[in-house]
Design a protein around this nucleic acid. Structure first.
Lengths: 207, 207
DNA sequence: AAAAAAATCCCTAAATCTAGTGACTAGGGA
DNA sequence: TCCCTAGTCACTAGATTTAGGGATTTTTTT
């Protein structure tokens, strides 16, 4: 049983190159191809591939749209995104939409085959440079937090949903002090409501 | 100029295997090794490797501690984590602490060499299964959101820091309606304050 | 077609938060 | 030494949010 592959790419030459490459492997079989995702669902219905090699920039209906449509109807079909540039924006859009991998077009042929195999096995294949960007997302960015230790603590507790009273209780300080800290937090962050403070916390401070 | 590597692993046999493997490549040079991270900083000071191959489970001072210490003093040294199990907890701890890669011990030798090369080049190397776990983190998990369209909209705006008035204005509805929606949100989420609502939003609903 | 859910509006009172002002202590830096 | 930041507490008045009520219309579901 070979891995069934469908190729989306608007560049004829590139499609041919890919087909030639994939033909070298006995385990891979290109079941179909298209220049854009206009008929993506019909094509999935008809060929039901294991892995889709998806170009991002294509006329009419692009790869991101195609990815969404595929994943909506066939979440089990693996989609391996290929693009010429390592555009962070798009990478994350694809990831959020369930892409199984993200490789660059100038990848070595061997790596492309490897990537297909990896996603077929249920893993995620990523070009190391892209993987690095993804990992960077997890690294707590040390933004210069202007708040003091206690102010931070108050903000964290408020952001967990506590009221001033609860915070006072939890920290073993008086309600008045919590009030003071909150005022200072608002001053320092240039805001004037709890909602804004919590929004700031989750967007900038939450680890 | 070959890539300088330092190995941390408490298993003697495994260290020998790794050294034998790395010796096969002219580009790689093992500059040192240790059974745990007790003297990690002294070792980095002395050998200043390009890449550290780090086992996680080691006696006394483990790989995660070692990783933290290395990254604190030498953020430019790449640390490639190796472990027997794909323990999600630890994966994320390592990622947050700046690990450049995460591979499994039973990886094929070729893949280990490839991983070292990738991290040396500034990329991130991940076993596909692990990469998949990382990517899963980005996929919005469809939790059954009990709120209606409008309630969701109100909550989203409140979570951006708007007051009831601003929300009313922004949505073109009356203050009273915002009040009503908020009450229903609290009922449905079993909470009773703005802080809790926003906390819920950022933890469960925010895309 | 009836029932349920969603969307819209209003009023009131109590609880909570916001803002302004003031004050005391301790520690670090100019 | 003097000034500033951080941490602590208090009082007050006004603004906002929360919690009770009701009520009407449109959509959705059964």
């Amino acid at each position: 049983m070979s891995i069934k592959i469908f190729i989306y790419d608007d560049n004829d030459q590139r499609r041919e190159s890919l087909k030639a490459l994939l033909a070298l492997s006995d385990d891979l079989k290109v079941v179909g191809e298209a220049v854009n995702c206009v008929h993506v669902i019909a094509e999935m219905d008809a060929f039901y591939p294991d892995v889709v090699l998806m170009d991002i920039n294509m006329p009419e209906v692009d790869g991101i749209e195609g990815l969404k449509k595929i994943k909506l109807k066939y979440p089990e079909i693996k989609v391996l995104i290929q693009t010429a540039f390592d555009d962070s924006e798009k990478i994350f859009t694809c990831i959020k939409n369930g892409a199984s991998g993200y490789i660059l077009k100038n990848e070595k042929p061997q790596r492309i085959l490897q990537a297909i195999d990896e996603v077929y096995q249920g893993g995620a294949a990523m070009n190391p440079a892209i993987a690095q960007k993804v990992l960077d997302f997890f690294i707590p960015k040390e933004i210069k937090n202007p708040l003091s230790i206690k102010e931070n603590e108050v903000l964290a507790l408020l952001s967990e949903g506590m009221s001033y009273k609860m915070v006072a209780d939890h920290m073993g300080i008086s309600y008045a002090t919590v009030n003071t800290y909150t005022k200072r937090i608002y001053e320092k962050l240039h805001i004037c409501s709890l909602g804004e403070a919590i929004a700031y916390y989750y967007k900038n401070l939450k680890t």
